[in-house]
Amino acid sequence: MSATTTFEEDNITPARRRDPLLVVLWVALVTVAAIWVAPFVFITFTAMKSNSDVMTTSAFSPPTDIAWENFSGAWKKGNFSNTFLNSVIITAVKVPLGLLISAMAAYALARIRLRWGRFLLVFVLFGAMIPFQVMLAPLFTLVNSLGLIDTYIGVILPYLAFGVPYQVFILHGFFRAVPKELSEAALIDGASHFTVFRRIFLPISLPVLAALLILDFVATWNEFAMALVLLQNKNMWTLPLGLMSFQGQFSNSYGQLNAAIVMTVLPAVIVYLIFQRYFVSGLTSGAVKG
């Protein structure tokens, strides 16, 4: 974890002699960055314009009278209070619970000598690579046979299952690197593994857990394909499903459609802007350094 990149480690020292190539590079990067934010600007502007303004004004001209009613209108028409609540409930249960069971399993695999430990580890890691998109039909069949279609549990359980591999992978790597001395003394004194896990390993892994928590929050918040097959009843839909249906029904209410996009995306963007550095450390600690 020591050498992970963060977005915030800049300490800009004024260049004493400006390298011309660096200036060119900088201009190029800024230009491309402007292109990269352009869609956000366009969407936000459109979300604040009335339909007639959308049709008569240029895409990048800021709205003159802000049409706040787009947001309230989209919120009502798109049944957002419902989908928002469902997303909140599912995410609030799935994310901490998933992290807990992954951490428990990762601890056991990393710190308890088991004959089939290595096999289990590969078995779990394998799951990080298989796309659940190919299994939508059997997932539906399974959840249906358990009578859990259109329930929170019915979607939370598969979410948990597909979250386990990556989190176990990261946490296993982290736990294994913890020096033996830290846990051995406690174990010799007769503490159980549960105690060591809870009192020693969970506290020291807080930064990693925070990173995984935030990554998983975004992944769960954004998940679409599984929710699409497991949540058929409109009242159980999550935000992405609500947005999709909104697009289908009201694609000509441009202002409201864009307001709906903004409202769907905003929570993830806010979380990202606040916790930026955790995203990066969470991603890179696994993929590159693992």
Partner: peptide, 15 residues
């Protein structure tokens, strides 16, 4: 420690 994660994973991802 392993049971919850491995159980849910096996049923809802491997099966």
């Amino acid at each position: 420690l392993l049971a919850p994660a491995i159980g849910i994973y096996t049923i809802f991802a491997i099966w």
